[in-house]
Design a protein around this nucleic acid. Sequence first.
DNA 1: TTGTATGCGTTATCAC
DNA 2: GTGATAACGCATACAA
Lengths: 308, 308
Amino acid sequence: MATIRDIAKITGFSITTVSRVINGHPYVDEQKRAAILAVMEELDYKPNKIAQKLSSGKTYNIGVIVPFVNHAFFDGILNGIMEEAFAKKYKVTLLPTNFDRKLELEYLEEFAAKGFDGLIVITRANHIETFYPYMEKGPIVFCENSTGTAVPFVAIDLVGSVTASINYLKEQGVKRLGLTLGRSKRLSCNSVNTIAKAKELFPAFSEADIYWDCIKAQDGISAAAFFKERGIDGVITNGDEIAAMILNQYSHGTAPIVIGQENLLISQMLHFSSVEFHLNQCGKEAFRLFQERKQEQIILPYELIIRE
Amino acid sequence: MATIRDIAKITGFSITTVSRVINGHPYVDEQKRAAILAVMEELDYKPNKIAQKLSSGKTYNIGVIVPFVNHAFFDGILNGIMEEAFAKKYKVTLLPTNFDRKLELEYLEEFAAKGFDGLIVITRANHIETFYPYMEKGPIVFCENSTGTAVPFVAIDLVGSVTASINYLKEQGVKRLGLTLGRSKRLSCNSVNTIAKAKELFPAFSEADIYWDCIKAQDGISAAAFFKERGIDGVITNGDEIAAMILNQYSHGTAPIVIGQENLLISQMLHFSSVEFHLNQCGKEAFRLFQERKQEQIILPYELIIRE
DNA sequence: TTGTATGCGTTATCAC
DNA sequence: GTGATAACGCATACAA
């Protein structure tokens, strides 16, 4: 591997001059520039990226903490982040936690060790306080509603959408409301907020009618069994694929009214209601907050898409 | 930011000794090790990742070249790569090309400049020959059938699945066969192979019955119009979402028999046939080939899943 | 316009 | 066990 030193030695110029050529700086004689470029070409020389990063202190790399990929919600946001990062010449490194707190901590350590210029946390495994000390090391942006803290975030309006969904179900005469939720409420403030809203707006709602740990489409199968047994006639799910799976289990008998999330193609095809969260925009804004080092807290508008 | 030098200075030991402590090397007095660790803790010292990479020459980072994310096929393979990379302590950096040849070349340059330890190319934009010179810089693995070359790859058996699909459609009495394909055949050998098989096994097939540039679900709308107009009664699509969209357009009138790909939830829900390619495994094997620097060429088995 | 010298933060070699 | 010192490859004040 040829280095900048080799090029300098061979061309007879100094490392500095070669460096100037590499970076397209002015104040280099055109003749010499051409000669240096020729040698670089001949030796198939490429400036070492790592060395450049070490020297500049910038990696042009952003880490994205996410439970896992291949999941509509996370992928939607990730997609937005990537589009924006790409436009700004940043690279995106995936940091999947699978909700493992220790693993997430390792990523934070790596960030503190200058592994990334910034971090976007789509969904965290640890408590938000855990992140505070690391936020002094560099910009960290969250994609979760963290009202009450001072962290920059851009989040979807889950409370708003749940409110609208419940009101709609009430209008439709739903008697017993069911919910599917992801991780236990101890960990997810989204779950906490959703439950609070349900209790507030739907007095008959009982926490016993929540189907927990509902993450992937397949979880919809047992969720449906759960709801059938309890005579649920209206369900707010945490994902279109889950919603689809639930509906599919009701092939005979009347299905409850089910509301999905993410407004995926499947909700359109199976014709059930869903919520458009603008996940792509969420990701884009998150990256913008990182890059401009803004401290904003943004909640995106949602649209409840009724299909009946 | 505290550096190893600071720790050395404060503790009064040499940089070497501190480095030994960092890396858990032997031959360090336990007393001193403890003292050094204490100071590191106190100063919140973390060894700089970039410096470590420069010094070691390894990044523990692998780049994945892919047209874009949020697409079932690519995400499926990506997921497999990530699982395996994760298990082997590697990080994954996404390199989206949007089929831009020049952009892909930039990624290759970055790879040559030691930006990544290896590259996995899910789908390439450039000709395979373009990659040859870069393969001398480090391991590159492809996820596309590249029989006839010497490059390591792990691919899905598209020819096999198309063969099986066509035979099935023939059995079902299909008279006029339609195809949806992605990029023009000039660029994609998958397209070339698919067409060849169609002509071979389905004599009545005409290239005029191919709907091109069919990438995203929405493309299924005009694909359906295209097929309706031409009286197509059997379609092999290049994706379940596209297949679903096509079927959806036939709400009144008899729909053609449609075969999807990827065996997504939606094919199960809408009950149309599809092909299981084991994309996850494809990604995993690709990473394995990278890590073990194997030159293997693997074609994965498929399963045609008939739903009628 | 060009070059010298130094820094970036680690790891590795080798002598003590 | 320990510590100078030289890589690693590049960027950049500052001097010339």
